[in-house]
Amino acid sequence: MSQKSNWPLWEVFVRSSRGLSHVHAGSLHAPDKEMALRNARDLYTRRNEGVSLWVVRSTDIITSDPDSKDAFFESPQGKDYRHATYYKASEGVKHL
């Protein structure tokens, strides 16, 4: 009954204040980038949630495969020497 609009999907990223990174807030449909930005403002920043907005076409986002997660993120496994907490001998030494 309704005419299909098929407007593309956009992902919305909001920066809550200067100095912080943009964080994914959600998504919306809009016919073009300008409308996407305006709709994002109306939908995701009605209470001063942001000082900056990014909108990205959902189809332009490349994601890692959730099923290959273990293999894909394998490299840091067992490399706890990348964390300061690994170095126990220097514990208690001041300003280190």
């Binding site: 005419q3 609009s5 407007w7 016919p31 073009d32 409308m35």
Partner: peptide, 16 residues
């Protein structure tokens, strides 16, 4: 709201 959606779609196509 149909005319608004149509106009927005047409405008987007033109811009593109």
């Amino acid at each position: 709201g149909a005319w608004v959606r149509e106009a927005a779609t047409a405008y987007a196509a033109k811009q593109e």
